[in-house]
């Protein structure tokens, strides 16, 4: 039940530290949205280069929970898609692999937004 907890903590923590440095050391106007976009794109690129997989083997959820993990899922999916379906897989693979995440995020966010109100 508790295996991989420490590696997940360390890898996850370090991935977040890089994001924190990005926000603190660059000139302002970097919003959370910019960091999230950078991370997902970074995850896709690292995934495509085969560099993200070792990180997941090392850190487990520490590498899949940060948004770069979502990018990795997209790139992994697209590569598998190409292997299976060729050119069509270029377009279907990524979104297919990420479908669960996207669907859960959309539905749960929608429901929460409808039920709750902002506190300010």
């Amino acid at each position: 039940m508790f295996e991989m907890i420490i590696p997940a903590f360390i890898i996850g923590g370090l991935i977040c530290v890089i994001g924190q440095l990005m926000m603190d050391l660059t000139k302002a106007n970097i919003t959370p949205a910019h960091v999230l976009v950078t991370y997902v794109t970074g995850g896709v690129i690292l995934g495509g280069l085969g560099l993200y997989k070792p990180l997941i083997e090392l850190g487990g959820a520490g590498a899949t929970i940060p948004l770069s993990g979502f990018g990795y899922v997209l790139s992994k999916g697209v590569i598998e898609g190409v292997d299976e379906n060729g050119l069509l897989g270029v377009f279907s693979g990524g979104v297919e692999a990420a479908a669960v995440g996207i669907a859960v995020a959309v539905l749960s966010s929608y429901l929460v937004a409808v039920v709750f109100n902002p506190k300010g």
């Binding site: 959370p32 949205a33 999230l36 190409v82 897989g89 937004a113």
Partner: peptide, 25 residues
């Protein structure tokens, strides 16, 4: 507004994955 941040994330995530997939292809 659900997609005000998720939109850009999906746009850049999906687009870059397509680029990666195309290069791989």
């Amino acid at each position: 507004k659900l997609f005000s941040v998720a939109g850009p994330v999906l746009v850049y995530g999906i687009s870059s994955s397509i680029v990666v997939g195309f290069i791989y292809y």
